[in-house]
Structures are given as C-alpha cells and as structure tokens.
C-alpha cells in the first residue's frame, strides 16, 4: 500500500503510522462539552465498509499528520491532505 503524502509524494506504507479515525472533532470548548460529547470523541467509532477518513502520520518521512480517505474494502486511497483542525474542533 502507498500513501500520497502532500509533501513527499507516493510513499510506502512502512513509512507511516496509523492514527485512527479522523472523522471525530475534539470538542471546541472542552469545559462546556457534555460527558456524552467526550465519550463520543474518545471512544465511539464507526466501522464502515467503504470510505473511511483516518489519520496517518508520516513518521518515517516529513513528520506530517495526514487525513487520508481510504476504502476499507479495497485499500484504495482517494484523498490525502495535511491534517488540520476539524470544523468545530478545538482551539483552546
């Protein structure tokens, strides 16, 4: 499997570290977030058969965290961009 790093181009899987589901946003206001929001962010994960957005760290390369869209059925990667705060994600 290869991941197209926006900085480094197509690189082999062995250069990357998996970072889990990227579809969850960290509560924007941690002190105001309900326990349910925290549980959702920390624990609850979908397990789709199909496209899945996930974090990958180019740990053996440029050290960027990427958001990668991967089809869990075929491992086809349709998108890889630099990870950035999710809309509604934490700033504090």
């Amino acid at each position: 499997m290869r991941i197209p790093c926006p900085w480094c181009g197509d690189r082999p899987l062995s250069e990357f570290t998996y970072g889990g589901d990227a579809s969850k946003a960290r509560p924007k206001n941690p002190e105001k977030a309900s326990p349910e929001e925290w549980v959702d962010y920390v624990y609850l994960r979908d397990n789709p058969a199909g496209k899945h957005t996930e974090y990958w760290h180019h740990s053996g390369g440029c050290r960027s965290w990427l958001m990668v869209t991967r089809d869990t059925r075929s491992h086809e990667i349709s998108r890889a961009v630099l990870a950035k705060p999710q809309p509604g994600g934490a700033t504090s």
């Binding site: 960290r26 760290h57 050290r63 960027s64 965290w65 990870a83 950035k84 705060p85 994600g89 934490a90």
Partner: peptide, 10 residues
Amino acid sequence: EFCHQVHWPH
C-alpha cells in the same frame, strides 16, 4: 506533533 498540527496549529 498531532496536538500541534491537528488541535492547535495557531
């Protein structure tokens, strides 16, 4: 790196 790049890049 995750915290800086993803949570608080500002």
